[in-house]
Each structure stands twice: as C-alpha cells, then as structure tokens.
Computed example of a mutant assay.
Amino acid sequence: MFSTDRKQPIAIFAGRSNPALATRIAAAYGCELGKIEIKDFADGEIYVHYEESIRGSDLFIIQSTHPPADHWMELLLMIDAARRASAARITAVIPYFGYARQERKDQPRVSIAAKLVANMLETAGIDRVLTMDLHASQIQGFFDVPVDHLYGSAVFIDYFQRFDLSNLVVVAPDVGGIKMARAYSRRLGAELALIDKRRPRQNVAEVMNIIGEVKGKNVLLIDDIIDTAGTLTSAAAALRRAGALEIMAACTHALLSGPAYERIENSEISTLIVTDTIPLRRPSDRIKVVSVAEHFADAINRIYTDDSVSTLFIP
C-alpha cells in the first residue's frame, strides 16, 4: 500500500489498450482504477467521459500505444477531457510508447513520427510522461515536460537470477542494442557478444557476422521490441550455427505482428521472456510473461509524493 496522505488526491485511470496491466498497476499501488466511460460511435469516433470528479487531482492515465493508432487518439482524448475537468496535474503512463521507431529523418521525405506524437501529447495537456524502454532514448528530448524513463531490465534481472547463469553470454541482436546488452551482461556477470546485421528493407534483417565468442555457450538475446520476430529468429539461427547451446531471448515490448508466433515457435529459441506492456495476442508454450506492474506502481507513488524516481532508472 502506497501513500495517499496528500491534500491533492491521486486518481488512476486507464484506457482500453491494456486493461489487465492497468488493473495490476492499480492493485500494486493499493487502489482501484477510476470509473471512466469510453466507447466508439458507429463510425469509429471515440467518446470519453470521466464518471467521477477529478477536479484538483493528481491524475495518472495508463495507456499503451501499440497498434491500432486509435490507442493514441483515445489517450489524447482522455488527456483533453481531464484538462477540461480541472485535474491539477496529468501524467501519461505509457508502458509502450508507439511510433518510437520513427525518431529521426534517416532518408528524404519521411516524417519524424515520435516528435509528432510528443507534440500532440503536450498540446492535449500533459504535465509529465512515464514510460518504459523507449526504442530511442533521445525521444525524451522531444518533450518540454518531464519524462521518466523506466527500464525493463529491473524486472528481467530479478527473473533471470533464479536460474543457473554459468557459461552465459548476453547477445545484442544489432548495434543499436549494444548498450542494453552491456548493462545486462554487467549485472548478470556474463560475457557480451554482438550480431552484425544489415536491413535491406523494413521488417527484413540479414545476419552478416557474430562479434564475440558463443561456441559452447548458453545465450541470452536481449531486445527492446519484437515485431515480426525476423531479426530475433535469424539471430538465433546464426548463433546455433556458430555453436551456441541453449538460446533464450528477452524483450520488453512484444508486438508479435504477422508471422511472429510461427517464427518463434519454429525457431532455435527455447524460451522468450516478455513483459506485459503489450497484451499477447495468444498464449504460446515458448513465451513467458513477467509483469512490470509493481515497477510502474512504485514510479507512480514516487511521482505523486515528489520523491526521487532516478533510483528506478538503472538500466
């Protein structure tokens, strides 16, 4: 049970993108989710109505923004309604921050979608953002309001330490993941390796080289997002050819689009551990879920009580 003894009352509400996680976060905090009506008109237009007073409250809105894009629109409407209902402070709790993979102009005539949605959130009226494992950490700089960036490693490390981690090497599936993989290898006392890949087109990856020794080693592949699982499964196949023994993988945000399930279930990966920032489309014997609810509840409490959140930022 966290603190509630402040003059400014706390209120925790949730959109429809991930109700199970929102319920777990509220339970971990020690309260119930606020009552809100969200529905779709016949043409798909979204309607939002807070069914209880939030005037003067410290409001936390929980909404992951995985596809469809309606989840973004729903969040924006919830923020707008809360601002018009005189909430004192509005924090958008976004366990999975969608459109984060379009965070730079890497070729002519493309949008920087992550900056656009940051602008939209601020225009709607947020005062703060709480999120986890942004695909690109520089997205924090797109905001002119505070952004608290949590790491999934906080829950994964606790999970992995239950196992025998001898003879382990942590592998980054691409250059962009090397910082995350290094943090895991340091905290698990494991060696580090890197997959050198090229991406001829979107959602297609080709393994070129493995940098580091994996022969005769147990492997833990680390990534922040799995979409179609092409990168992950091709990396696992290359590691097996290079002589790796058991191959496990961990990912914070399990989008698992298109052929992802079939690829994982037919791959060299023995177990894929994911968090519940995004609800799974269906269960799988190869996929295990660990919850980030307590981690988010702790962060919400620290924000509400104006305590330091930085101790939760250790990657």
Rank of each mutant, 00 (worst) to 15 (best):
A154L: 10
I157V: 15
V170K: 11
G189F: 01
V170L: 07
R186W: 06
G189P: 03
N167Q: 10
Q161P: 05
D174H: 07
V169M: 02
A154V: 12
Q161D: 05
S185R: 04
Q161W: 04
V170I: 10
V171C: 07
A172I: 05
A193C: 03
D164G: 06
F163Q: 13
R186H: 12
D164P: 05
S185N: 05
A190D: 01
K179W: 08
R187Q: 11
A181C: 01
M180K: 15
D164Y: 08
E191C: 01
G189V: 03
A181F: 00
V175H: 14
A181R: 01
V169D: 02
N167H: 11
L192R: 01
R182G: 08
M180N: 12
V169F: 02
A181S: 06
R187L: 10
V169S: 02
K179N: 12
V175A: 14
Q161F: 00
A183N: 14
S185M: 03
P173W: 02
Y184R: 10
A190H: 00
R186T: 14
R162V: 07
V170S: 02
I157E: 13
L192G: 00
K179A: 15
F163N: 10
F163A: 14
D174K: 09
F156T: 14
A181G: 03
R186Q: 12
R186E: 14
Y159K: 11
R182F: 06
R162I: 03
P173Y: 03
S166W: 07
F156G: 13
V171E: 07
G189S: 04
M180F: 08
A154E: 14
F156D: 14
S153P: 08
I157R: 11
A193Y: 01
R162W: 04
R162E: 15
F156L: 15
P173I: 06
F160C: 13
R162K: 15
K179L: 14
G189W: 02
G176P: 00
L192C: 00
R186Y: 10
G176M: 04
A154Q: 12
G189Y: 04
Q161M: 09
G176A: 05
V169Y: 02
P173K: 05
L188P: 03
P173S: 08
V155Q: 12
D174A: 05
A190V: 01
V171T: 09
G176F: 01
Y159W: 13
A190F: 00
I157K: 12
I178V: 15
G177H: 05
A154W: 09
Q161Y: 01
A190Q: 00
V171A: 09
S153D: 12
D158I: 11
Q161R: 15
I178Q: 07
L188C: 02
A193T: 02
